[in-house]
Amino acid sequence: MKKLINLTINDQHYEVAVEPNQTLVDLLRYQLGLTGTKKGCEMGDCGSCTVILDGKAVNSCLVLALQADGRSIQTIEGLETGEGLHPVQEAFVEKGAIQCGFCSSGMILSAKNLLDQKSNPSEIEIRRALAGNLCRCTGYQKIIEAVKSVPQAN
């Protein structure tokens, strides 16, 4: 039995009917066409499906769509502004932190979430915050460089 839920995604309000066993990642990707959120394992192991849910980075494959009812979500599509790339996106592009790009949406959102909560994080803080996002291509070095290079507000 489908159920109607209300949620905000990238500042836009949605009312959608979802199955009780439907995951948030599937809702985003297959029902709403927000395919920037990736799906690498569906078991909470890889982090490619990371979205920001009420200010927290979560694996959207582990969240039921129903659980997102009434909540606010930011996906990779919501990062760009009228002025162009978000500074974290810019840093990833500039530093060569993206290879195949399959981990990048999740990685960038985890990095953004970290920087939102803590300006000028130390290297170990970056490593801890992003340890749930697997990348098989880069060896992480340029990702860390990118996160470190993001201009900080203060």
């Binding site: 920037g36 592009v93 993206i98 790009g101 990048s104």
Partner: peptide, 19 residues
Amino acid sequence: AVRVDTPDKATGKAVFIDD
């Protein structure tokens, strides 16, 4: 040189097969 494909990959616009 900045890679030609990475702005799309950084913004979720790059299309992979399951997209």
